[in-house]
Amino acid sequence: MKQIQMTQNSSFSLISTNKIIQMSDVWTSYDSKTFALEGINLSIDRGTNYAIVGQSGSGKSTLLKLMNGMMIPSKGTIKIDYVKPNMNNKKFKKMMHTIGYIPQSLGLVKNITVLENILIGALPRLNTIQSLLKRFPEHEIQEAKRIISLVGLSGKEERKAYMLSGGEKRRVAIARALMQKPTILLADEIVSELDHVTAHEIMNLIADAQKRMNLTAIMVHHDMQLALEFANRVAVIKDGHKILEIGVEGDNIVDFQTGDLNTEEIMEMYDNDPKK
């Protein structure tokens, strides 16, 4: 169990000023009557391994969808690498090419092969003719093969996606995101339904990629323990509010808001989680 060390806010926030995600007073609604998120403030430093945890229905997936511009806040502002998300903005459209997003449902194309699914991540680098004829340049195919072996799918390149197991499907989704040469990786509960060993294997894979490519990984988790183990920052969401944000450095956990939480209290918030 990790130890809690009380520290001032400043000791963490002064280190880096390069913010890749900034949200201030963000409200979102699916039906314009109720709000899924209510006044979220958060900022994420470039290169962070960030985790979002919370109970089912708390708004984790919604928060992630804001970070790639698939959802627009009803109120408040969000900046992704200092740009306001907007599909009609050329600069943002270009940015989308390098935001790897793995939705909770994975979003694989079922009737095409593993290799083709992964090559989709390279489509923004191809011209229209090449992509319509499925003429991928040799170096892209080599890169796809390299990623396939990285995620442990060698030999399954030609399998149709619907013929894969749940864990294999997750690996394909990760590989597609890595194929984008991402600067930001958004992953929504991709290990929640997996056994402990496979979950750790996949988390290590992402942690490696995150360090090697200096990418900002933002991952939604159900399991607080897993978040503390892999992330260096953890935000806790409850009923559309961010109720807690903690930093993890080695074995130390730092609460950024109150500074007076202990591990027991953090874990307690998880004991009333029905999914656990």
């Binding site: 511009g69 940015m95 090419h97 989709i120 991540g121 489509l123 191809l126 229209t128 992509s131 319509l132």
Partner: peptide, 16 residues
């Protein structure tokens, strides 16, 4: 949604 979020063109979305 997942493929559109990569910012691919409409023709690419149709093809893939």
């Amino acid at each position: 949604d997942a493929v559109s979020s990569i910012g691919v063109s409409k023709w690419q979305l149709i093809r893939y």
